[in-house]
Simulated scan of single mutants.
Amino acid sequence: MQCWACSELATRLNEERVLKMAMTIPLNINIKEPRWDQSTFVGRAKHFFTVTDPRNILLPNEQLEHARQIVHNYRQGVVDPGLTEDELWRAKYVYDSAFHPDTGEKMILIGRMSAQVPMNMTITGCMMTFYRTTPAVVFWQWINQSFNAIVNYTNRSGDAPITISQLGTAYVSATTGAVATALGLNALTKHVSPLIGRFVPFVAVAAANCINIPLMRQRELKYGIPVTDENGNRLGESASAARQAIAQVVISRILMAAPGMAIPPFIMNTLEKKAFLKRFPWMSAPIQVGLVGFCLVFATPLCCALFPQKSSMSVTRLEPELQAKLRETSLGCERVYFNKGL
């Protein structure tokens, strides 16, 4: 009787082992690319809703390292026992949320895309609440550009380092440009409708983005960013690709800020005339921050999705010397691909 029970147990364990082996996911899932089709806006939007999920910044280091190990093992052809395809994709997105796609380094926490909504909603909400006095304008524009400098550095394209001198130049230039724009516009709008004055922070932010991002990534403009063929084989570095990447990022960032800085002013202008905010004026900042946050939850991933993360351009638009090199070494290559940054 005991032998029969042992035999039955051994049979059951063997069946479970076979079942687990049968459930092992295939090794041909391309986790170098996003889960959804990036040739469509909807596919890119699904991808970035996952990438910008604010919950990712709450993940402990142990979970980040576990996700990194799963991704690393899978790329080496090793699948953790019992790992499902959904778990693999979850690990891939947890990994992507914390580690730079080109260098593999763990990114600064507040510079990660998953920190964009909570950080921007706080900073932008305060910028739009405290915009009437010079000290407040200077302080919040400085805070905003300090945060932008961290984000731009953290999400730079390629693996080229940026020097302390270049970092300082970009930071000082963008901060000065944003403050000067905000103060100048504030002076011009003193005699117009208060509603118009509420849009001053947005214009200042847009102007600063046009300064900050190119300066923060000036090394890429000078030396180029890595370009590859469609299979990921590195072909060289291109400054032309860097210019296209940076232009796309500037457009995305400005449009990303637009809903949160354009819609709340109309709502707040109405609410501040109501009895509630006249009685509790201290509620103005929390309400404004909440409105900005609601807009950013949708604007951040949707504007990131405007252009493919793996951007491309025709070989004919590259530098002449790189074109000549590709004609000799990569016959038939018509387009090159590159990480545009965020």
Results as ranks from 00 to 15, higher is better:
residue 159 D to W: 07
residue 156 R to N: 11
residue 181 T to S: 09
residue 153 Y to M: 13
residue 187 A to W: 15
residue 141 Q to F: 11
residue 193 S to K: 11
residue 166 Q to N: 14
residue 189 T to Q: 09
residue 210 C to L: 15
residue 198 R to S: 05
residue 174 A to E: 01
residue 138 V to D: 07
residue 127 M to S: 06
residue 193 S to R: 09
residue 128 M to L: 12
residue 173 S to Q: 06
residue 126 C to L: 15
residue 201 P to F: 00
residue 139 F to Y: 12
residue 214 P to I: 06
residue 158 G to M: 03
residue 159 D to H: 11
residue 138 V to Q: 11
residue 157 S to L: 10
residue 134 T to F: 14
residue 203 V to Q: 05
residue 131 Y to P: 08
residue 180 A to K: 09
residue 197 G to P: 05
residue 131 Y to K: 04
residue 175 T to L: 08
residue 127 M to I: 10
residue 183 L to T: 00
residue 203 V to D: 00
residue 168 G to D: 09
residue 129 T to Q: 03
residue 129 T to V: 05
residue 183 L to I: 07
residue 214 P to D: 06
residue 155 N to Y: 02
residue 190 K to Q: 14
residue 175 T to D: 12
residue 132 R to G: 07
residue 159 D to K: 09
residue 142 W to V: 12
residue 194 P to M: 04
residue 189 T to P: 07
residue 156 R to G: 10
residue 187 A to P: 04
residue 128 M to T: 04
residue 130 F to L: 08
residue 173 S to W: 05
residue 164 I to F: 14
residue 175 T to V: 11
residue 182 A to N: 12
residue 137 V to N: 11
residue 171 Y to S: 02
residue 157 S to E: 08
residue 151 V to S: 03
residue 184 G to T: 08
residue 208 A to I: 03
residue 131 Y to Q: 10
residue 144 N to R: 08
residue 205 V to C: 07
residue 174 A to W: 00
residue 141 Q to M: 13
residue 211 I to R: 03
residue 210 C to P: 04
residue 204 A to G: 07
residue 211 I to W: 03
residue 189 T to N: 07
residue 199 F to R: 02
residue 210 C to S: 13
residue 169 T to Q: 15
residue 135 P to G: 01
residue 181 T to H: 03
residue 131 Y to F: 06
residue 200 V to C: 00
residue 184 G to F: 05
residue 170 A to H: 03
residue 145 Q to G: 04
residue 140 W to F: 10
residue 213 I to N: 02
residue 154 T to A: 08
